[in-house]
Design a protein around this nucleic acid. Sequence first.
DNA 1: GAAATCCTTACAATGTCAGTAAACATTGAC
DNA 2: GTCAATGTTTACTGACATTGTAAGGATTTC
Lengths: 167, 167
Amino acid sequence: MFRVNRQTDYAVRVVLALAKKPKGTRVSTSEIGREMLIPRAMLQRIVATLASGGFIETQAGRDGGIALAHDPNQITLLQITEHFEGTLILSDCILKEGDCPFEHKCPVSCQWKRLRDLLRDEMARVTFEQLVEEGKQIEAELLQHASSKSVPVPVVRNLPVADNVPL
Amino acid sequence: MFRVNRQTDYAVRVVLALAKKPKGTRVSTSEIGREMLIPRAMLQRIVATLASGGFIETQAGRDGGIALAHDPNQITLLQITEHFEGTLILSDCILKEGDCPFEHKCPVSCQWKRLRDLLRDEMARVTFEQLVEEGKQIEAELLQHASSKSVPVPVVRNLPVADNVPL
DNA sequence: GAAATCCTTACAATGTCAGTAAACATTGAC
DNA sequence: GTCAATGTTTACTGACATTGTAAGGATTTC
């Protein structure tokens, strides 16, 4: 297949939930679990992993909880993803030097590498500040169209959508 | 993780091997297996899958073998990949309508969708004709530098490499 | 009919992932 | 100091996908 683990999805949701709140707001894990519909035990590991990556600050004990360690505009989708998935790789053949019997002679590995760099670059541009903003826009659109009959479709602004894929 | 199956990698190699040869050349599976270092039993399945996708034409019997069904410039990396992996998906949350409890309210799914479209678009631009050309360029560079001391590093021409990824 | 080839199916070994559970450590309120 | 609420860590299980092996069947040429 070709997709991020569910754990990573969950982690993104957690960071987004924190990014939505005023800076420094501390929230208990269980509260986030309720809000974001994440199984408790999974969430425990995710929180620990986020903390080990320095993305959140944790506070044990009564009234404890977690809070973002940085501004949402300093945290990118790439950072969270790679912290949970490891460095992005589209094909094993560029994983290790010498792992592929064709080494540098292979044009395919060059392309996989180029595509990976492209994807990484793009993911590095997506900050959680941006995601929060887009979330607000989407909610505004939903409210605006609430009484209309048409189904509201969210639009990501200022971002060209590539749909000119042949075949 | 985040990578294509080995089977897909193998399949790409098979198509590339065929694309390198003069149009219509028929090659036996076992020969490709030797050339591309693919386990025999795996290769059988891969060839069958390629045939079912209409990418190759097969001929049973003595002097049989496989040949490309189309020009290399009509076959893209995306086609082969999606035929073996299914439609590209970066995150499950955009897999099915109604599968994600947040539906369209979620800015994250919008981004995953945008990134996926970007990647698909880029992969659709990579044809096997291009891969063959790049392979020739790489070999030429290798020959040119064969007597020099520097380790030859292949360069993909006219393709910007995104390495300005922060952090 | 025999040999070479592609096609299909079943199966086992391995690894990954999602989720559960339980014990532990830390903190603040009383 | 004790207790309760919270985060931390580890072990385990079941489900599933992936890789690879093996065997038999179908097709074509000689």
